[in-house]
Design a protein around this nucleic acid. Structure first.
Length: 714
RNA sequence: GGCGCGAUAGCUCAGCUGGUUAGAGCGUGCGAUUCAUAAUCGCAAGGUCGGGAGUUCAAGUCUCCCUCGCGCUACCA
């Protein structure tokens, strides 16, 4: 194990609140891991913060008629308090709008610039002449080429989720002025990722850099290594590290041509981890540099799978290009969490918002945490359902864990006036782990220690759901201990044995109060209080516990007095679950209505044309004679169309909606004098006219059956 | 179409470098029990390991082909 740890959790974007997908994907696993490290007495710093730059925030500000500053201030506060409420314990929750971050990231840029890691390249970008500035992808709207949504952004259509380039949009419009943007050349600095490809490939696949073993690739998740290799095999391209933006970190002003240029978010955001660490060091009077630069530091990034290539390829390339920084020793990216069978969607409000949960389920933070861990998408996508939430709470937290604790507490008060009983160390009883031969307490403590070690191993390999199962097995063994020995019976016949059994049961409860801490910190705290034990203070308590167990030392001394029994968890009734399901269904209905009536998103009318303009088009009737799929294409069908006087080859992007055999014989309308165009190696001589609905579905526009081909349409 | 990841009991998932009758939790059935939030404990049923072919003495585990899901990526005149 390394001497010190720096753990990061992906910086959430400050334009919306936190939902359960974020939680299960990155923040909860990071928090559990960090809490565990601290329980083992490790030196660890856990950083995160709001990612507050970029065009999406300016766009949102414009829409709400406010400033970017106001937007990020608002969401920074929401995010920060949500993390606190759900028990995600960062050492610092920073923000990228802080001056120290601007300074840090500018210095990074400067260093890369000076060491000639960049090439300057000029490309064509959309420019709004009326306001005199380049338009970020997000500042351009237009008609989505995929689903015909008229409000698609230049980088993405929020309706159908397609990733776009601004040049893909039909009828692009500037969001600043509403005018039609023009293409204009602009110069940016590109990181030579192509030059980093070779060492990245080796580092990812062998863990070695310059012959030095930095990590064990076998410990990285399959999908992480796979995704990286997929990129590496396609060849890395130089990547722009700057943008034409007005909300972000300025390119250092002494660099020629820096005016109006801002750092690209993927340079900006990960460096936010470093800025946050620096600020933490200032606040704590510590030195930040060992945490980023000492070889004996383990850097670990917790992220969702959408961030893999940035954290495994691009950021490491930046760190190495800069020099002097350690590379991540692991990037345990999680996959995605679905909600009731569907993808989480911020824009469609298909989500469970963590701040709302904390309001509606006060005091039940751990119930959500527990369910998130049980359903954590560690290896593949997984699913959250409210029914499942209820089941894990009632069956596992209440029936197994809380009930066990309660049994022990009640019996201890009943038999021993709330004091941990003295017992004879040689007294035998039945084990809670194996119902075979009788054991003494030393044997039981050893079994428990082994289980804790299994839990530790699972946490260290990022198998958190299994780790949690091991903790629950300790509780099950506690229940079994009581069940096999039946103290409520033996109290009359063999009170000496009951003392040994109950003492053991109390040791199990005390052990749980520590083992639960990484996963369910609130419950751990409540349990410690119930036992009248000091709260966990991140001081290596688990390490001490393991040592005590090895040395056969009990955790709770005989004679120690415990507090009042109370229920650690309560059953969640059907009504509460039904209410939450109804709430989701309501947003679903609202969404349908949105797209159903008023917001059907009819495409806006195009500008008026003259009769002559229309007459320029030669539209003809025709019949599809042949149809086949175009090799290597998902969307294109190659059609042979009979226009009566001749036959044409026409490529049409309808393969996702029609099988070749079902369009043969179809009578269609063709734009016949459209200039030919080569696609996927075949020339298309015209265009089949189709009607398209808001979801991008297509249908043929056809003449009446049997109408002859080649007739003009007007 | 290409690439990556996945497909194992009703549900959610473990199964590392191939090796005896394929595992866990939940759910289900039966039994035991009453200290406990009708909780607990035990036992049992339940799987042609997505489909097909191959390599091997031996394949859930390796190879190839196919199907489906998720993601990235090229093509929509």
């Amino acid at each position: 194990m390394k001497k010190r740890y720096l753990v990061t959790a992906a910086l959430p974007y400050a334009n919306g609140p936190l939902h359960i997908g974020h939680l299960a994907g990155a923040y909860l696993p990071a928090d559990i891991y960090v809490r565990y490290l601290r329980l083992m007495g490790k030196d660890v710093v856990f950083v995160c913060g709001s990612d507050e730059h970029g065009a999406a925030i300016t766009v949102k500000a414009r829409k709400e008629n406010t400033t970017p500053r106001a937007i990020v201030d608002r969401y920074h506060e929401i995010l920060k308090s949500t993390f606190e409420k759900i028990g995600i314990n960062f050492d610092i929750y920073h923000r990228t709008s802080e001056p120290i971050h601007h300074e840090t990231s500018q210095n990074f840029f400067r260093k890369l610039y000076d060491s000639q890691e960049f090439i300057e390249e000029t490309t064509e970008q959309y420019y709004d002449e009326s306001v005199g500035q380049f338009l970020a992808d997000r500042y351009i709207t237009g008609i989505c080429p995929v689903c015909a949504n008229p409000d698609a952004y230049g980088d993405q259509c929020e309706k159908c989720g397609s990733t776009l380039n601004p040049t893909d949009l039909k009828e692009p419009k500037s969001m600043l002025s509403g005018s039609v943007p023009v293409k204009r050349p602009t110069t940016h600095w590109f990181l030579r990722l192509d030059q980093h490809e070779a060492w990245l490939r080796e580092w990812i696949n062998t863990g070695k850099l310059n012959g030095i073993q930095l990590h064990d690739p076998a410990k990285w998740k399959n999908h992480v290594v796979g995704q990286c290799n997929s990129w590496l095999d396609q060849g890395l391209q130089p990547r722009a590290m700057t943008r034409d933006l007005d909300w972000g970190v300025d390119v250092p002003s002494e660099i020629p041509g820096s005016e109006g240029k801002k750092l690209y978010v993927w340079l900006d955001a990960p460096i936010g981890y470093i800025s946050a660490t620096r600020q933490w060091a200032i606040d704590q009077g510590k030195d930040w540099e060992p945490y980023w630069k000492d070889e004996d530091t383990a850097l670990i990034h917790f992220i969702g799978k959408d961030n893999i290539v940035f954290h495994c390829l691009i950021f490491p390339a930046i760190l190495k290009a800069h020099g002097g920084y350690v590379l991540p020793v692991n990037v345990p990216a999680n996959q995605f969490l679905n909600l009731e069978g569907r993808k989480l969607s911020t824009s469609k409000n298909w989500a469970v918002w963590v701040h709302e949960y904390c309001e509606e389920f006060q005091g039940q933070e751990d119930v959500l945490r527990y369910n998130m861990i049980r359903k954590m998408p560690e290896q593949s996508d997984s699913e959250f359902t409210w029914k499942g939430f209820q089941e894990t709470n009632n069956n596992e937290l209440v029936n197994n864990l809380a009930n066990f604790v309660n049994r022990v507490m009640v019996l201890t008060h009943k038999y021993y006036e709330g004091k941990v009983p003295e017992f004879n160390a040689a007294q035998t009883f039945k084990s809670g782990w194996t119902n075979e031969k009788p054991v003494i307490q030393a044997d039981e403590l050893k079994s428990m220690k082994e289980k804790l070690e299994e839990m530790s191993a699972k946490i260290e390999s990022f198998n958190l759901r299994e780790a949690l199962m091991h903790v629950m097995e300790i509780s099950s063994a506690g229940n079994a201990l009581l069940q096999f020995n039946e103290p409520w019976k033996t109290i009359k016949t063999d009170p000496e044995q009951v003392k040994a059994v109950m003492n053991m049961a109390l040791q199990v409860v005390a052990t749980l109060s520590i083992a639960l801490y990484p996963f369910l910190p609130f419950s751990s705290g409540r349990l410690r209080k119930m036992l009248l034990l000091p709260a966990i203070e991140d001081q290596g308590e688990l390490d001490h516990l393991l040592k005590s167990l090895s040395a056969n030392e009990p955790i709770l001394a005989a004679g120690h007095e415990i507090g009042e029994a109370s229920h650690l968890f309560s059953r969640i009734p059907d009504e509460v679950i039904d209410q939450q399901i109804a709430k989701l269904q309501a947003t679903d209905v609202a969404n349908k209505q949105d797209s159903g009536d008023k917001q059907i998103n009819y495409q806006p009318m195009k500008e008026t044309i003259q009769f002559d303009d229309f007459m320029k088009m030669d539209i003809r009737t025709g019949t599809i004679l042949e149809a086949e799929k175009v090799e290597k294409s998902k969307k294109l069908l190659k059609l042979k169309v009979d226009l009566g006087f001749e036959q044409r080859t026409i490529l049409s992007g309808i393969a996702e909606f029609f099988q070749p055999e079902e369009v043969i014989g179809k009578e269609v309308v063709v734009l016949a004098n459209l200039a030919p165009r080569v696609m996927m190696g075949t020339e298309s001589q015209g265009m089949i006219l189709m009607a398209e609905d808001p979801d991008g579905k297509l249908c043929f526009v056809s003449p009446d059956k049997g109408w002859p081909g080649g007739m003009g349409v007007r």
